[in-house]
Design a protein around this nucleic acid. Structure first.
Length: 230
DNA sequence: CGTTTTTGACCAGCGC
DNA sequence: GCGCTGGTCAAAAACG
């Protein structure tokens, strides 16, 4: 059958546009790769500096874990000794108190509590500066294939680089000490809204999330949609 | 047997 | 002063 020339022109136009988009996608992929490499180098530099930065302020992170796992284990490269546990007023989940036991006299403490809004997350608050180096062999357990819990920790970018999408859930909430995931606020609705707002803002500022978003957009253009793997 | 975890008691800070 | 809350202590238990 004959195809009208106007339709043929349209098809050619769409094909040209498609080809152009594919070229752009290829360019974006290349840029993404370059950005990933640069991000990796920056992350490594940040990792080296992160220990000293803990001294200025307490640092708060979210860690995704299996909600059935009732232990407060956050594999962050340090050894911790638990010295107390409390049930706090605004969170039904107990808060665990840890001291760093990697070196005698290390003043670093951390509090770990399951997030009230999302049981998939542990909220860890670090205080103080380590007077020793991190043990890399402990940190590597983060990506152990035998571990059932999925953990990702902001400030420890090895896991981030393994899975940029997963890294988006690890948020450094250093700037929001008063907005600590459901603690200290009676209004659940406003609490959740403010938390969502803050999470959205944090995501927008998170470079790994930006990378992940770019990758997802690129995939959605060039490939058939795939079901999420996690 | 040394180390770590558990858990109730204790203490300090804060608001009323 | 009293009660509430979060943080720490320390003895006992558990663990390797």
């Amino acid at each position: 059958m004959d195809v009208p020339s106007s339709v043929k022109d349209k098809v050619e136009g769409v094909e040209a546009e498609l080809e152009q988009l594919q070229k752009e996608n290829a360019a974006l992929r290349l840029m993404l790769q370059v950005m990933s490499n640069k991000y990796k180098m920056l992350s490594e530099a940040y990792f080296r500096e992160s220990n000293s930065q803990l001294a200025a302020n307490s640092s708060q992170v979210f860690v995704e874990t299996d909600p059935r796992d009732e232990s407060h284990i956050v594999k962050d490269g340090f050894q911790w000794r638990k010295y107390g546990q409390k049930v706090t007023k605004h969170n039904p989940f107990p808060r665990a108190y840890f001291r760093c036991s990697m070196a005698p006299g290390c003043p670093v403490k951390k509090k770990v509590q399951r997030c009230m809004e999302d049981k998939n997350f542990l909220m860890a608050t670090y205080e103080g500066r380590h007077n020793h180096e991190v043990n890399p062999s402990i940190g590597q357990s983060l990506s152990s294939p035998t571990s059932s819990a999925t953990t990702s920790i902001s400030g420890f970018p090895n896991s981030v680089l393994d899975n940029p999408l997963r890294s988006a859930i690890a948020l450094d909430l250093n700037l929001s000490s008063e907005n600590s995931c459901g603690n200290g606020n009676d209004d659940d609705y406003n609490n959740k809204r403010s938390m969502e707002d803050h999470v959205a803002a944090s995501l927008a500022k998170d470079p790994s999330f930006t990378l992940a978003l770019a990758a997802a957009v690129a995939r959605s253009i060039t490939e058939h949609p795939k079901p999420p793997t996690n």
